[in-house]
Write a protein that binds this DNA or RNA. Structure first.
Length: 347
DNA sequence: AACACGGGGTA
DNA sequence: TACCCAGTGTT
């Protein structure tokens, strides 16, 4: 009979857990404070704040009647300051509506300000030993590897999926230890990069480890807000009827492709300034705009056509090539648009 | 579903 | 630098 991974994990936790201030108590109010402080904040940062906070506000009533300036002073440097205001608002709700007793059901907890699915599960399991999952970033990473879940953990749906996968394994009598064991494993062993699988107590149960995909999980798609980048593009024609092009760097966006020289137009600068700076002594023939959307950013190119007599080097490793020779080089699509437009601008 | 919200640690 | 961290509230 093989021992279940849940009990192996809980036993590992009991032997290896770190001594942390909030692990000395099962006071739901203290657990609540620690969980809010630990949101998006590392353990070592939280420790001194937690100690000061429970000394300064030892009961919910102390926090409920605290002045906001005093509260924020206690939170100073922790960041995400709305956490502090929401915590106080939530504590006031509990003192007024629940007689100072932290609710024991998920439904009620989720209606308390500042308590979401994770914190509700953490309070229920750690303070009350209720078998409710508490899925944070650590748990999503551990479970996605253990079961080889390849859903995007950036989506809210995936957290619910992981809760559902976890629920059947929740030990009826050790829910708090089990949830904390998952988080502790994520923090100490099953790390985002370079997981220490050779030290992992449940590696033999881990599908990702078995199939050697642990470093590919969890899958988290980047948020990559598409930001706009503006460039001025220089299409220079020499007295010998050749055009200046240059090769892009060997790494990064569009690596190794060819392009007309581009210069980023920084915030606040405008194209007139650019023209004065780069084309001072060169007659400008005409200009056009080209837009191009990549997965993570958007280019807005303003193209300047100009003649110059001598074939001087503009930037980086470049060369002068004839109009027909342009087709021998690989250009990104936005630069292909420019080349196509040449037919109309330069007969 | 996407985004704002702070600051610090790490590869 | 980029990513991550015991996420939640708002739109």
């Amino acid at each position: 009979m093989t021992e279940s991974w849940t009990m192996v994990l809980v036993n590992w936790y009991k032997e290896n857990k770190r001594i942390l201030p909030w692990r000395k108590t099962r006071n739901p109010y203290f657990i609540w404070i620690s969980e809010v402080m630990l949101q998006q904040t590392q353990v070592d940062t939280v420790i001194p704040y937690y100690e000061r906070f429970i000394t300064r506000f030892p009961t919910m009533y102390d926090l409920a009647r605290a002045d906001e300036d005093v509260l924020l002073k206690e939170w100073e440097g922790l960041g995400y300051y709305s956490r502090a205001r929401n915590l106080q608002a939530g504590v006031r709700e509990v003192t007024e509506r629940y007689g100072g007793i932290v609710p024991r059901t998920k439904r009620e907890l989720l209606n308390v300000k500042g308590i979401g699915p994770y914190t509700a599960g953490a309070i229920l399991s750690i303070a009350y030993n209720e078998p409710e999952p508490a899925v944070d970033g650590n748990v999503m990473r551990v479970i996605s590897r253990l079961f080889r879940i390849e859903e995007d953990i950036a989506k809210a749906k995936t957290r619910r999926l992981i809760e559902d996968r976890l629920r059947p394994y929740m030990p009826a009598d050790q829910a708090g230890e089990f949830n904390q064991a998952l988080m502790e494993l994520g923090a100490l062993i099953c790390k985002p990069k370079n997981p220490l699988c050779h030290e992992c107590p449940i590696a033999s149960f881990c599908r990702a480890y078995k199939e050697d995909v642990q470093t590919k999980l969890p899958i988290k798609l980047k948020k990559q807000k598409t930001k706009l980048v503006r460039y001025a593009v220089l299409v220079l024609q020499s007295g010998e009827d050749r055009f200046y092009i240059q090769k892009r760097p060997s790494e990064g966006l569009l690596a190794g492709l060819w392009e007309f020289p581009m210069f980023e137009i920084k915030e606040g600068a405008d194209e007139v300034n650019f023209k004065a700076r780069f084309l001072k002594s060169k007659p400008v023939r005409t200009s056009m705009k080209v837009k191009h959307i990549f997965s993570h950013l958007k280019w807005e190119l303003t193209v300047f056509y100009g003649y110059c007599g001598s074939e001087e080097t503009i930037s980086r490793a470049g060369k002068w090539v004839t109009r027909t020779a342009l087709s021998d080089y690989a250009f990104p699509v936005p630069h292909q648009k420019i080349i196509h437009h040449l037919d109309r601008v330069i007969p």
